[in-house]
Amino acid sequence: MSRLFPARRGLLALAALTMAGACGIAAAQGPAAAPAKPGWPAKPLRIVVGFPPGSSPDLTARTFSEPLSQALGQPVVVDNKVGAGGNIGADAVAKARDGHTIGLFINGNLTIARLLNAQVPYDPARDLAPLSLIGVSPLVLTAPVGQEGVPSSDARAFLQAARAAGDRWSYGTPGVGTVGHLGTELLKARTGINPLHIPYPGYPQVATAMGGGQLQMALLPPALALSQERAGKLKRIGVTSAGRSTLAPEVPSLAEAGVQDFQLEIWNAFAAPADMPAPVQARLAALIGQIARSPEVRDKLFQQGWQAVGSSPEGLARRMRDDTAAMGRVIREQKISAQ
């Protein structure tokens, strides 16, 4: 799920390692290779993903499976446990007791879930141990091409038209409580626009509806927004990062159009069950961070639409706390509920 306000604390930066042989050699020789506990790992490592095969979280998890396997000397298996916006998979990780299970999460599972629904069966702060923030990305404000009354020239003209339209405009998201939903509600508060929210099963369906004239705006991931623009269906208006993003450097930030106090990022991260032995957590965190910062994996993550991070556990924990607090404010101010 999202970064709504600028992070002013830096994440630990470690030297990047090359993949394949270099990653295996470094794991065998460096501090991270010290045995986490006698005999660990004793069996394959399982990465639980709460989304289907081929989804963005699944692709990221599989990017890490091979180098992790090389470093650990055991197979690494991706286990897709789909449902409830990733919360079924998150709960499976929280309850895992085999010492060989971790999860690849989107930020919503680690920040938003319990803010909107106290019945979510796991508590990220209590039941999950942060390992590493893997990648971050802004969203892109997009508009349909050729829809009457919806300018697609620049952000200022677009927001002016949106204010004039009031609730005659609609925006789409992958559902209540998603980053796209909370982010657009924050954008409404910061700009005085008031489009109606229409939830869809996922971002592709949002893009299709907007291209078909059912919606006037949406916040989309950069790769999807670019593909829709190339197809002549949508126009990228502005990115939600504080400045221009390396993922879409030609697109101005909304801050350049005068939108103040607004920053939004989606991110993904690895976490483990809270009761996994601390030495095992430390070894996995070090390996995952090193892999994320390696040139080959950084490039793969970029192709998937992520700016690689590879943080320390403490860096991820800070991000979780900051974003939980920021999104909690949006939920309270905008009176958002799960219903």
Rank of each mutant, 00 (worst) to 15 (best):
L116W: 05
G328I: 10
I331E: 05
A338P: 04
E229L: 01
K37D: 04
S153E: 14
L128S: 02
A125Y: 01
P138S: 02
R298V: 01
M210W: 04
P249H: 12
K81G: 00
E185Y: 00
S253M: 07
V78N: 09
Q29W: 08
G172I: 06
P151V: 13
S170I: 01
I291H: 07
G232L: 05
R236P: 01
G212D: 13
P249G: 07
F158Q: 10
A189P: 00
A162C: 03
L110T: 06
L254M: 11
V251W: 03
A272E: 02
Q29V: 14
P199R: 08
R236D: 00
G166C: 09
G192P: 12
A269C: 06
G73Q: 09
T101D: 03
S65V: 01
A161W: 09
P249F: 08
A231W: 04
A42P: 01
E314N: 07
A165R: 13
F51P: 02
A282M: 06
P295W: 05
H181F: 03
G192L: 13
P121L: 06
V93Q: 06
G146E: 01
M320A: 02
A90P: 09
A143D: 05
D154F: 08
D127S: 11
S153D: 15
A286V: 03
G175Q: 04
K37I: 14
P221C: 03
G243H: 12
D154S: 12
P41Q: 08
V239K: 02
F51I: 00
L316W: 05
A308F: 00
T60C: 15
Q147Y: 01
S65Y: 00
Y122C: 09
P75T: 08
S65F: 02
K335M: 10
G289S: 14
A155K: 11
W40L: 11
V206M: 08
Y122A: 07
N268G: 11
I331R: 09
V49W: 10
L301W: 04
A162W: 03
L284H: 11
A90R: 06
Q119V: 01
P279G: 11
L254R: 10
R236H: 00
V179D: 09
D98Q: 06
Q263A: 11
A13F: 02
I198E: 09
L226Q: 14
A90T: 08
G172K: 07
L116A: 04
G192F: 13
T18V: 01
Q29S: 10
T111I: 08
V120N: 07
V49I: 13
A282H: 11
R46W: 00
S2C: 01
Q147T: 12
Q290N: 02
G177E: 04
K300R: 15
S152K: 04
P35H: 07
I106S: 06
Q205V: 10
F158R: 09
A32H: 11
K43M: 11
A113R: 12
Q290V: 12
R332K: 14
R319G: 03
P195Y: 08
G310M: 06
Q263G: 04
G305Y: 02
R3N: 07
P57M: 07
A61L: 05
S245V: 07
T142V: 15
V280G: 04
L14I: 11
G172E: 03
R9E: 12
V140G: 04
E256H: 09
Y122M: 09
R329F: 01
D79F: 04
